[in-house]
């Protein structure tokens, strides 16, 4: 059974009014997306800046209220949970964010930072708290001495370890990782990715992993979701999707990923133009103004996300294949 299922999840923001224009637009940050995260597995989310990845993460974390759609956690709809159920959900879903320098309260000791979720949600004695903090520090590979220091005494990679320790304090089921290594040095990233993988194997965690680095997502994820302008355009098994993308956008995105070796020569699909504004997305398929394989139907009719072979694709190219 999936840990978390989202169905038709939608979030619209009221765009701020310009200084003189009286019009009020709607930013369709996340528009009717559905996905599910299996227990002990990683769902990777990729897409260009502004396509709604962080908004999705916030919806899952309850930091934003969805405009529409539902989230089911362990089979139960979040909307219908009683307060106890909500508390349980809160404890089961934790997060690690991108900037390790902004994620830790600068004026709190490491032990207090790590213990905060614990003290807030459970009645525990200070001895137990201390023991748990040391256990968590050990889990993320930091020395015990760290407990009494302040965040500014740590490097970026170490801070990210602290952020991970804190996220694990309540033994969550799902951890949302929003670009957890983007802000780290190249030589440090592998340390954190390895740590996250080890923790998953050991604790059976599920991850919602968001990143710009396609190779890192392919490496970390079991399933990948590709988003474009608030919509899911393709979902599939990480390895097969990375190797043989079906949607034209996925193909362009993965062909734009940088090679890992100078001799690796790939076919390059250069997209024309830039990502349109989510304030007024193009009609029909949102990708059609940039799509190299665009057809007349694309501008008129929005393609539905439907099964194509081993995965789901939202593209008119596969209309025949389905029938």
């Amino acid at each position: 059974m999936p840990v978390l299922e989202a169905a038709g999840l939608t979030k619209h923001f009221q765009a701020r009014r310009g200084l003189f224009s009286g019009s009020r637009g709607v930013v369709r940050a996340v528009d009717d997306i559905s996905f599910s995260i299996e227990s002990g597995r990683t769902l990777g989310v990729v897409g260009e800046s502004g396509c709604g990845k962080t908004t999705t993460a916030k919806l899952v974390l309850g930091l934003e209220e969805p405009t529409g759609g539902s989230i089911r956690f362990e089979g139960r709809d979040l909307q219908e949970l009683d307060p106890a159920g909500r508390r349980h959900y809160r404890k089961s879903v934790q997060a690690v964010f991108q900037d390790p320098f902004a994620s830790l309260s600068p004026r709190m000791r490491i032990s207090d930072i790590i213990a905060e979720p614990l003290v807030t949600n459970e009645t525990v004695t200070s001895g137990e708290v201390r023991r748990r903090v040391l256990e968590l520090l050990d889990l993320v590979g930091l020395p015990e001495r760290s407990a009494d220091l302040f965040p500014h005494e740590f490097s970026g990679g170490q801070r990210q370890r602290i952020a991970i320790a804190r996220a694990l304090a309540l033994s969550p089921k799902l951890v949302v990782l929003d670009e957890p290594v983007s802000a780290l040095d190249v030589s440090i990233r592998a340390q954190i990715l390895n740590l996250l993988r080890d923790l998953q194997d050991r604790l059976g965690l599920s991850y919602l992993f968001i990143a710009h680095d396609l190779a890192a997502v392919a490496h970390m994820s079991h399933t990948i979701v590709v988003m474009y302008l608030g919509k899911i355009v393709e979902v599939g098994d990480a390895q097969t999707l990375a190797r043989a993308p079906k949607h034209p956008y996925t193909a362009a995105l993965f062909s734009a990923a940088l090679p890992s070796h100078p001799d690796e020569r790939r076919e390059e699909i250069l997209l024309a133009g830039e990502v349109p504004s989510p304030l007024n997305p193009p009609s029909g398929c949102r990708f059609h103004p940039r799509c190299p394989q665009v057809m007349p139907v694309c501008g008129q009719q929005e393609p539905a996300l439907a099964q194509v072979g081993d995965r789901f694709v939202a593209c008119h190219l596969y209309d025949q294949a389905r029938h």
């Binding site: 490097s155 190249v186 030589s187 592998a190 340390q191 990715l193 390895n194 890192a216 990923a257």
Partner: peptide, 23 residues
């Protein structure tokens, strides 16, 4: 070490060879 620590698109879920410590 740097070349080995970078995840590759084609590689499956092998452990990365991390560079320990910091600059």
């Amino acid at each position: 070490a740097l070349l080995n620590s970078i995840p590759r698109m084609t590689d499956n879920r092998n452990r990365l060879t991390a560079i320990e410590g910091q600059p």
